[in-house]
Computed example of a mutant assay.
Amino acid sequence: MIEFIKVFMLGVIQGITEWLPISSTGHLLLFDELFPLNASESFLSVFTVVIQLGSILAVVVLYWSKLWPFKSDKKEMKKSFILWSKVLTASIPAAIAGLLLDDIIDSKLSTWYVIALALFVYGVLYIILEKKIKFKTRINSLEEITYLDSIKIGAFQMLALIPGTSRSGSTILGGIICGISRPVVAEFSFFMAIPVMAGASLLRLLKSGLGFTAIEWVYLLLGSLISFIVSLIVIKALVKFVREHDFSAFGIYRIILSIVVVLFFSFR
């Protein structure tokens, strides 16, 4: 029973931290150190990636009307296809970098000190960018985002390959720097997660060989389900939050978390 509680909590952490700009990797790392799941190391590396599929499904459910391209209205159908083409364009930089660097990231960068450093550096950047620099907004709808804008946001998404960075934080702040309004770039960031996270999950599953035990499959399904339910709530809350607030509070949180990570691993 205790293992199912751990899986439940990991799903909750994934559902919250995947969308908030606070790094899912850092939180999952701390939880695993405090309450390690009784499973093989190879399975755990797959589990923390594959439960992202639940988070992706939440985006699809919430934004089905915008994402589903096969509509009866030809004008709306065209808008959906164009949106998908921009999302896929934005996904190209991270997809290429991820395929080339996946093994290096796992073996060299997935360490607590890299995560702590990324948490701290980007926490400081969030505060500076939000409090010291004002960016002019020129785009207020998804339709106004150009393919060049998509590539630029995609380049920011590559930063999230460094553990502890936060994919949502990189892409949303990158979009703001490019002149896109907060609610619009938040939605676009959610859509960008679909091909990137689905691709990462598929790659990790194929590398694993799918040789899981029955209980490990149950863990994967339960973690994904909880991640899905929590993501539904968090995505709605984040969209509302970015309309009225900046990311400086998340910057402060990241700095505090980075200190916690350093202290924990230094004196454990």
Rank of each mutant, 00 (worst) to 15 (best):
L117I: 13
L119E: 13
F120C: 11
Y122L: 15
G123F: 09
V124Q: 03
V124M: 12
V124A: 12
V124G: 04
L125P: 05
Y126R: 06
I127A: 06
I128R: 02
I128H: 05
L129Q: 05
K131L: 10
K131Y: 07
K132E: 04
K132M: 12
K132V: 07
I133M: 04
K134E: 14
F135R: 02
K136M: 11
K136C: 07
T137D: 00
I139D: 01
I145S: 07
I145G: 06
I145W: 11
T146F: 02
D149P: 06
I151F: 11
I153G: 04
I153T: 11
I153F: 02
I153M: 09
G154R: 14
A155F: 15
A155I: 15
Q157T: 09
Q157V: 07
M158W: 06
A160R: 00
A160D: 06
L161F: 01
I162V: 14
P163N: 10
T165W: 00
S166L: 08
R167I: 03
S168C: 05
S170W: 01
T171S: 08
T171P: 06
T171Q: 04
T171Y: 01
G175M: 04
I176P: 13
I177C: 05
C178V: 12
C178E: 14
C178K: 13
G179L: 08
G179P: 06
I180L: 11
S181R: 11
S181I: 11
R182Y: 01
P183H: 00
V184N: 06
V185Q: 05
A186P: 15
E187G: 10
S189P: 15
F190T: 09
F191H: 05
F191I: 02
M192Y: 01
P195W: 05
V196G: 01
M197A: 13
M197R: 03
M197T: 07
A198C: 08
G199L: 10
A200P: 02
L202F: 10
L202C: 04
L203E: 00
K207T: 00
